[in-house]
Design a protein around this nucleic acid. Structure first.
Lengths: 230, 230
DNA sequence: TCGATTGTTACAACCGTGTTAAAGATGCGA
DNA sequence: TCGCATCTTTAACACGGTTGTAACAATCGA
């Protein structure tokens, strides 16, 4: 699932511009011409970021920002202001309310996308999980390396993510669809059967005998389970 | 473990703002509404930095700073003042007491985070200014020189910073965006692809065979990793 | 045994990376 | 201050690996 950005902007020209470039950068964009509906909707499906025009009909951006910061479930979502008001006073006011950046109009699409990405990056989980060890398998996310019986084995990005996910959820059964949601994330519309293929590829790399897996077991009718060998 | 910052601030709004943005920037934040408890606690688990409001109930920031500087185990920890008092006199007084920076309110979150990082960076230096050696490569930041197999090789500033960063974080994978954040610092809005170009240039200078890198490896789908050759 | 589920293979499309050249900045010396 | 040299960034394209899919084979359960 793509990161989702909620945009409050009344000028249709600018809305179109913003949507076009953010979607081009791989984001899902939800547009609100006024600030009225956004809070309720956002609590249900929480956006990764708010992009607020300060001057809009209904609740203005500053008020909206204040409410976002006071709403438990939204308080930690970053906010960027987008506005023609470029006076220093407004700028400071916005940032004091807890906005994370401020893009003055007119802005370049590059700048818009760059700033959105920069803010999201700052808020990404800086918690790099430590290495995992299961049986003879060692997984180090920081180095993105996989070692089997002490020997380094090369993996592709998707193989690594899937194996890492399994190894961190030992003993649980996952359906193919669950795995697609958790591991494939934003790349939508993938056949569940693709999971089978990756399971095979991973087995070839970690199982001494890929035909009789000791780690990555098939759970017929359900999905797959990763377990520590006895 | 994340760098840990102790903050003394009585205004709850500003506290929240500060905590939010520092945590967003990857720091752990410990808040103290007054300056009373902080000294004892800090001696046990020493913070990487103090952020003090000058005007707080109990011990004020200036007094606190003085005590920090007189406490053996805390004396070398950097202090930043945060205050509405923007008079030159206060500023000078704070810096005379051994503060390392001074952020006048109102401040922008970007500025806050930038200054905190800047001060921490200044204090990181004495801890790791020494030359680094990886395989046949020697990097000396003090002289900004690079030697490969004993031979001096000229580098540009950006090449050097990037290589230095890699060499000091052996074995870790970095995305292009992470590298832009860490190495390019303030010059924002650079295409991630620029990293590719610099990686190539570095490879030409340090790798015997740039097509088959031994040090600076590509991690497809993720970024790059610098490792010691076997 | 039969149907459903899973395993396997090969292939094509796509995306990420390497690479080059040229434009754009920056700094330096005349 | 201007012009030149160097560094930096961008843009474009070619290549190769990764990825997803379809088709078929094998296996399991009833």
């Amino acid at each position: 699932m793509k990161p989702h950005i909620s945009v409050v902007e009344d000028d249709p020209d600018i809305s179109r511009l913003v949507r076009h470039h953010l979607e081009g950068a791989g984001f899902a964009v939800k547009l609100y011409p006024t600030g009225n509906a956004i809070l309720a909707e956002s609590e249900r499906q929480r956006p990764a970021l708010f992009l607020l025009d300060i001057m809009v009909p209904g609740k203005d951006g500053l008020e909206l920002c204040r409410q976002i910061r006071q709403t438990q479930s939204l308080a930690l979502i970053p906010v960027i202001f987008l506005t023609a008001k470029s006076s220093e006073a407004d700028r400071v006011l916005g940032l004091e309310l807890g906005a994370d950046d401020y893009i003055p109009k007119p802005f370049s699409p590059r700048e818009l996308v760059a700033r959105v990405k920069a803010v999201l990056r700052r808020f990404e989980r800086p918690l790099a999980p430590g290495p995992v060890r299961v049986g003879e398998i060692e997984i180090d996310p920081a180095a993105m390396t996989l070692a089997v019986s002490g020997k380094l084995v090369t993996t592709t990005a998707t193989e690594f993510r899937l194996l890492d996910y399994f190894a961190r959820h030992l003993g649980r059964v996952f359906t193919r669809d669950q795995l697609l949601d958790s591991v494939w994330r934003d790349t939508s519309y993938v056949t569940p059967r693709s999971v089978d293929v990756y399971v095979r590829r991973i087995r070839e790399k970690i199982e001494p005998d890929p035909e009789n897996p000791r780690y990555l077991k098939t759970v017929r009718g359900a999905g797959y389970r990763f377990e520590a060998p006895k």
